[in-house]
Amino acid sequence: MPAFTFFGGKGGVGKTTVSTAYAMQLARGGARTLIVSTDPAHSVGDLIDQPVGPDPVAVTDVDGLRAQEIDPRRTVEEHRLQTKRELRDQVSAGLVREIDAQIDMAHEGPGAHEAALMDELIAVMRGAEAYEQVIFDTAPTGGTLRLLALPELLEAWIGRLREKREAAMRLYDRAAIGKKQSRRQREGDVILERLRERRDRFRFARETLQSAGRFILVANPDALSVRESTRAVEQLTSYDLPVAGVVVNRITPTPPADEHGEAAAFLRERVAVETAQLRALETAIDAPILARVPTVAGAVLEDVGDALGAIDAPPDEDAH
């Protein structure tokens, strides 16, 4: 099984840049690597200056690296259409209209978006056998955390649903006089089958995340980002998800000591503020700081990659 690394953090801290630079570095080190963007803004393609779609494509500049962009909106739409097709196969035309409205309702809002994203993440994880390293450039913190908490909640919830359904089935069985099998029993099999399939998928996701997954938070050296990261680490830990540490991105470089201009004075002031924030982060957070990435001027991906050098690649289980 490959190793799965998720990059999290507030919007705009540089998750896509850091995760892409990291993926490139892993690939250059010889690991078959996949970078997956789940951000609806889809900026991996912009960053590597190459069109990227829902199926993995080879990144032209880097051997052994493939990139993929997931669009949960498309997934929601496909799921809606598939459910409606099944409805038309099952019930009379009169009923279709009423139930159609309910299907539409279930596919609107942020909940549907997150559920679809979860399905896509599971699909990627299940089909990742060809890779040694899979890197996810995840969506911003709040949604991601809720999403990653879902497998556990859903599994428990589906378990209870199945118990109810099975108990009802058993009772119908006992109530049936003679050896008659009721319509409900036959249909119940489809429903139980669906619930079982769902449960297996969520269980796989949870087990994979806990055994082969790890989370790296990207933060900037400012008060908002420091607080957000501290909360995120607490939340991930409370969900039993492994946190590898924090990458601090966009640290202002200290100007040379012989510079005395206004710009140098401004930079020194910034550096002092950021140093205080970094210290606050170190004391507040229950995870190591893996790398400190300076604000870079030129070749962003290369420079960020160099600064990330300190992060070890997680072991790929097959390699041992």
Binding site: V76, H79, T83, E86, L87, D89, Q90, V91, L95, I99, Q102, I103, M105, A106, H107, G111, A112, A115, A116, L150, L153, L154, W157, R160, L161, K164, R184, E187, V190, I191, R194, L195, R198
Partner: peptide, 27 residues
């Protein structure tokens, strides 16, 4: 438990239980 939405209680799993709708529609 599958469709609390019918009573105005929003469900975090409505997306997943919608898959069951075609099979419980008659009831």
């Amino acid at each position: 438990a599958c469709f609390p939405d019918a009573f105005g209680i929003s469900s975090p799993t409505a997306y997943y239980t919608a898959e069951l709708l075609p099979y419980v529609a008659e009831d």
